[in-house]
Amino acid sequence: MSELNFGTDLFSEFDRLQRQMAGLFGGFPSSIRSGPFGAFPQINIGSTDGSIEIVAFAPGVDPQKLDVSIDKGLLSISGERAAAQLATDGEEMRTYAQERFVGSFRRVIELPEHADPDKVTAQYTNGCLTVSIGKREASKPRAITVQ
């Protein structure tokens, strides 16, 4: 019988293997609901008894350039964020590093079946786009009296 000897603890070997697999497959998300790293805008999704609440964090986006639509159970948020203009006293500025996303974007979110596309509101405040989608009446919780 052969003896396995990793030379270190087993958990660090699993960690190394996981990093190698992530690099091999391009770092796919660990969950189907996970978005790509650095996706813009970042979103939070929640629910109340009467609605589905989606908050997209999009600072620096002109609300007039945002497009929100629902088609076949998919919520689409798209728009464009312009580059920040820095004062340079008329000199040309060369960028050495840029971490802020600039350009066109689009996020698509699959909605649950109980979302009612006829009951949608959207509001942009302080860099956050809040989309509220009402739930169908049949899916709302209701109390049942026991006789």
Rank of each mutant, 00 (worst) to 15 (best):
E3K: 09
E3T: 07
D9F: 05
D9R: 00
L10I: 08
S12E: 08
F14D: 00
D15V: 02
D15K: 00
L17H: 08
R19Y: 05
G23E: 10
F25H: 08
G27E: 00
G27V: 01
S30V: 03
S31I: 01
S31A: 09
R33P: 06
N44H: 09
T48S: 10
T48G: 08
D49A: 13
S51E: 05
S51H: 01
V55Y: 11
V55S: 15
F57P: 00
A58P: 02
P59M: 09
P59K: 05
V61C: 09
P63G: 08
K65V: 07
L66I: 12
V68A: 06
V68Y: 12
S69V: 10
I70E: 01
K72T: 05
G79T: 04
G79L: 05
A82Y: 05
A82S: 11
A82R: 07
A83P: 03
L86E: 13
T95A: 13
T95V: 11
T95Y: 14
Y96L: 11
G103S: 08
G103P: 01
F105C: 07
I109P: 02
E113R: 10
D118W: 02
D118G: 15
K119M: 13
K119R: 13
Q123Y: 13
Q123M: 14
Y124I: 02
T125I: 09
G127S: 10
G127H: 09
C128E: 15
L129H: 09
L129Y: 14
R136M: 01
R136Y: 04
A138D: 08
K140H: 05
R142D: 12
T145E: 13
Q147A: 15
Q147D: 15
